[in-house]
Design a protein around this nucleic acid. Sequence first.
DNA 1: TTGTATGCGTTATCAG
DNA 2: CTGATAACGCATACAA
Lengths: 332, 332
Amino acid sequence: MAALAGVSPGAVSKVFNGTGRISEATAERIRDAARKLSWRPNAAAIALRTARAQAIGLVLSSDSKVPGVGAGNMDFISGIESVLSPREYGLLLNVFISGQHDEHHFYRTLAERQRMDGIILTNSMVGDTRPELMTQLGLPAVLVGTPWKPGAIEYVDADPPGAGIAETVDHLVELGHERIAYVSGPKDFVLPVQRREAFVQRLAEHGRQPHAVVSVEYSPARAAEETTALLAAPVRPTAILYGTDTMAIAGMRTLQAAGLRVPDDISVVGFEGLTLGEWIDPPLTTVQRFAFQRGRAAAAKVLTLLGETVEEPVPLERPALVVRGSTGPAPR
Amino acid sequence: MAALAGVSPGAVSKVFNGTGRISEATAERIRDAARKLSWRPNAAAIALRTARAQAIGLVLSSDSKVPGVGAGNMDFISGIESVLSPREYGLLLNVFISGQHDEHHFYRTLAERQRMDGIILTNSMVGDTRPELMTQLGLPAVLVGTPWKPGAIEYVDADPPGAGIAETVDHLVELGHERIAYVSGPKDFVLPVQRREAFVQRLAEHGRQPHAVVSVEYSPARAAEETTALLAAPVRPTAILYGTDTMAIAGMRTLQAAGLRVPDDISVVGFEGLTLGEWIDPPLTTVQRFAFQRGRAAAAKVLTLLGETVEEPVPLERPALVVRGSTGPAPR
DNA sequence: TTGTATGCGTTATCAG
DNA sequence: CTGATAACGCATACAA
């Protein structure tokens, strides 16, 4: 570019980075030439010279049994992009397939390639070794969720321990429910573990005990199975919380197939706030999360770690109980 | 690295690229050193030198009204990654927000930054100008879907014009349905337009006419509205096809709320094959698509365009009708 | 077979 | 204030 514009490459750099001193005359001349040639600074050259890739990585986890990654992730990604793209940062997506990839090797490769300046990690796990790994690799990282071990990694806590659970329990207790069960997500993830604990604790504060608590993988089929098991027991629950909306919907279907009416015979609560929840019968009472905001917050945090100045202190809305039709007074 | 290993930089390059001739002895020595230093070729330097970013871009569209991008995209992304990542290609995600971004400027910037060697475009549109734009920008592109104008762009046709529609119509006709309505997706997208046409045509082949055909945006709320309108008419349909599963579920809920039984009074068919469809009441009859495969095929095609040799000719499974509980014999 | 030099498009440093 | 110049880490053509 420089040559074509008849100026020195250094001058061009100064103009496009606002650095150094340059006369307005030549600056304008350079901008003109750039426009005419529709020239843009070459990303690779910048990356090489500054040792900054101008991109951040995102690792989404997936199970080898289920190649797809959770649907809620799309809003999350949009949120990330909404703060990255205005700053000309790229988003590098990586799908980690547990069982197929070796975690250590996977992240090490990511770091050594130096294609990303920072990384966003999801799915905080019990006994997670990634925080230490990332510091060891020297790759600025932000975990989305509550870290298993505090202090080991920067994080964005969109779901403060047990968020929404207390409200849910209160809501059900108020409705007179005595036997509340919880079909939770897998216990190797931090989020469901915390929600379980918060569930038990809040119930205790009401002087009660959970009717039952089980942990299963995030799967509608498994949720349905556990629901059936719950119904087979001599004493049935009057309300069931589920780890996700999808599980709740599958559970609700199972209940209805067994001849129970929701919410007259039994109440159901989900977790996520899928739009679809409004369109099933009855509409699903759930804890609404805010994936887009979560993404924004995570991206803002990474950029901050990189020394980028992110003015707006992206607010994180706390997950909130949305009461719809699947919860009602306890039977009898 | 070269210096540290006590060899020439050229030698290192040869070893890691399999190019040029080098003795196995020194090659091994270099590999050893690399392992010890846990050294990897620097992506930026390679990109600069070879003028190849070793990354491909993906543009997901989103509406400014709805920041999120469709949920089905996650499997699609996993599919792309599954062919990109083994070849050390990165996936650069970009969210295009219609109404907020200027299309021309958006893609031009993407191309000029040279961060991606090729690009995957989604949401084929009626009157799409992107094919011409991409050739003009010189950025190898693959469109996922049927192009509006043939020949202007490479594409991967996961949904050959009207796929699944004929089977659906046949299925309903066999069940004795005379009045079939179609609540289709927006008419600025190629896919819904083609499905509409296929619908009308197949019906014609059976010597029939559609009961009604409407195009609305992809939204459960709009689907519900149109369903209500359909019910308000003097003559009601006995079956309704919807543009997506989500729309179908919302529509079904509307029908049930109006006192109609599905499928006894009216049949419902969706499009996509969401797992959740199995867990509603009644389970949704739908046209199953294969997002993961679609992603794989798209990625393979882009790489081929770049001169990369992709051995496996990623197969594309044709969308197929999955009959579940929401369709049944026509009433009376 | 191996080592060396040059350049990719920037940024940063320095002399003009 | 401006223009030349040396890296950044690699690939490649060429010399040894």
